[in-house]
Nucleic acid binder design. Structure first.
Lengths: 349, 349
DNA sequence: CTGAAAGCGCTTACAG
DNA sequence: CTGAAAGCGCTTACAG
């Protein structure tokens, strides 16, 4: 790894000129540019990003903060992360994975985060990360609503509308007794979806019963990976078999639902319908039946999050929306059908 | 963000002393330490990682390079990445996601990678990344065998043994006509598994037929996400229904297999057995039947890769193994059973 | 279009 | 145990 001085000497120019050639911040004559490039190639030179960062105050990296120490990625996360990395790369930015709870970091005295900004996934109602970012003065955009003293830019789906749309879709099929396996209790997205669900049900004149709403356990909870399976059994049992439709939070959950229903001898969608929020085609079509879903467009969310952040940083031109809503749409497959007649799917015990 | 000078002045010590307190590289008297810490807190000071990196030559970040621009994570990837991030954090290291093909990077003139080392996933027989790392002088460990001029440390499963074990397992159940849906052609892991499969079959006296070996399409190929589904149909058709067992490369592929077999009216495991290499319990138990698998211990691989890399960097004590093999083991579930009598699963057409 | 020099915010011998 | 000073490898006004 040679340094800028050596290149400058070999190309018979000043360090400043070498710098200009690589940063392209000031024009350089064609002849000089070529001489510098040739010298650089000869010496295998590439600018040192760290030294550059020290003076430009730009690390050229953004943080992607995902809560949890241990985690599972759903299809949503996978597509989202993929898109964030790709979009960031378009502007020469790299992505630092950052998903460690602060208390689990080894070093007692942390150095500053070498990132220019952050994308905060799955925000909670009370989220340490928000406060941390604000204290450190790191610009960030959240994926989903957040509770903060100062307003912070957010990229999100319209979660209230999503649940309303799903309920309307199921209502139209004659369903009324719907159980909702919601996201984690402490997340803001779960709160919004919960409210919207309650409203939709009230609008339809359905009295809410306890078996109609569950929340995904924390990742640290061993019941996490059996969420769909176990709560589906509860739903069927507690509802006395009256439930005619299930809304599952993600693909993993939905597979658990299907598994439980199969064990109970219930047919999907004839006895009971299953609707899943997000998941990708290559998995959702693998089950029997293929799962009808709401496409949350995670790739759009990721790309918008990055451009919003880069706008905040002045890298990309354009105004930053305080609240950017990404469209979503129902993808019909085969797991939802007209509700069975009352009691048809009652379980024998 | 205040700087070291301000803290030094407030604490009435030199910059060097403030530095020592935070780096803990030289002892500092208790009294002075406390004064510095108090001043730091008051000024909300934290050392600037970039400035520190410039002189220490340590970025405190490792790169995780995953091939492809677009990607799907299998359960294997998810658990592996998770483990890498966690293990790195134990030593104060962060993880930079790096999965962009070089030709897709926007900036024509790249600055140096601000990482101390890299973990290279899914190496190919001819892999640009290896050459790049070597040219840039970045220490790296590969997950899987690699073709390189100089030997490079590798953390891996014993892929030959894995396939041998799987074949032995299936042989013991009476299977002989086995189709192998292998990893991508260009990967070294696929090559090792292929050879081992061929050996095992030869040892058993089975003549290899074309329908017995397939390779996963490149991610850029649209057939990628239907690999398991489509090739399973091919296997059944081309073998004239004589195949009695399928080995699938990963969970996603296996779900595709199951889907195809169901459409063909073949019962798993009575008509045909399915064995999957890797996948996690929370998905593998969701299908009908639950999938018997080889547990590759991705979390162990990730942790070992990080410690090996940090040893190369002199961060962690200990010798670095040129080749570190992580154990694997069969997890029996319900998708493999005794082979049916010859022709029992012949498909009617 | 190009150069000389200061400076980004730390760490690290060297000296005491 | 602590300090003064040089230096890490760049970029950026300033001057021409």
């Amino acid at each position: 790894m040679s340094k800028i001085d050596e290149v400058a000497k070999l190309a018979r120019v000043s360090k400043g000129t070498v710098s200009n050639v690589f940063s392209q911040k000031r024009p350089t004559s064609k002849e000089v540019t070529e001489r510098v490039l040739r010298a650089s190639r000869e010496l295998n030179y590439v600018p040192n990003q760290i030294a550059r960062s020290l003076v430009t105050k730009r690390t050229m990296a953004i943080g992607l903060t995902i809560p949890h120490g241990r985690f599972f990625f759903s299809a949503f996360h996978t597509q989202f992360i993929n898109s964030v990395v790709l979009e960031a790369a378009r502007y020469g930015y790299r992505v630092l994975l950052d998903m460690i709870p602060a208390q689990d970091i080894a070093t007692p005295f942390l150095a500053s985060y070498p990132i220019d900004g952050a994308v905060v996934m799955d925000p909670r109602e009370a989220d340490d990360r928000i406060e941390l970012m604000q204290r450190e003065g790191i610009p960030f955009v959240t994926i989903g609503r957040v509770q903060a003293t100062a307003p912070t830019p957010t990229v999100d789906n319209d979660n209230r509308k999503i649940v309303r749309d799903i309920c309307d879709y199921l209502f139209a099929l004659g369903h009324g007794r719907i159980a909702f396996l919601n996201a984690g209790v402490s997340t803001t997205v779960a709160a919004d979806r919960r409210e919207s669900f309650l409203e939709a049900m009230a609008g339809r004149g359905v009295r809410i019963e306890p078996w109609m709403m569950f929340h995904k356990p924390e990742l640290s909870d061993e019941r996490y990976s059996n969420y769909g399976y176990e709560e589906t059994k509860r739903v069927i049992e507690d509802s006395g078999g009256r439930a005619t439709a299930l809304i599952a939070d993600d693909d993993r959950t939905a597979f658990g639902c299907l598994h439980a229903l199969k064990e109970l001898g219930l047919d999907v969608p004839n006895d009971i319908s299953v609707f899943v929020i997000c998941g990708d085609d290559s998995m959702l079509t693998r089950s029997t039946p293929a799962l009808t879903s709401m496409d949350l467009r995670p790739a759009d969310l990721g790309a918008r999050a990055v451009t919003t952040l880069l706008r905040m940083l002045g890298i990309v031109d354009g105004d930053v929306d305080e609240r950017c809503i990404v469209d979503s749409g129902i993808v019909e497959r085969s797991s939802c059908a007209a509700a069975p007649n009352q009691g048809r799917n009652r379980v024998e015990r």
